[in-house]
């Protein structure tokens, strides 16, 4: 049986897949926003013993 690029399951589950994709994208954006908020917050501190090297 040949492999079809577009199996009918792709169309059948399109709504589910798009929904999961959007939720994952939303999660990534949320984690990014959280990280940005925490790092730019005034009371942010690096864990003790951490050194910023380079430059």
């Amino acid at each position: 049986m040949p492999i079809r690029a577009e199996h009918e399951i792709h169309t059948r589950r399109k709504g589910r897949n798009v929904g999961v994709g959007l939720m994952l994208a939303g999660f990534v954006i949320l984690v990014l926003a959280l990280t940005f908020t925490k790092v730019t917050n005034g009371d942010f501190e690096l864990p003790s013993g951490t050194e910023i090297s380079g430059g």
Partner: peptide, 8 residues
């Protein structure tokens, strides 16, 4: 609480 932290 910062609004982003509160929302999350």
């Amino acid at each position: 609480v910062h609004p982003v932290i509160a929302f999350a």
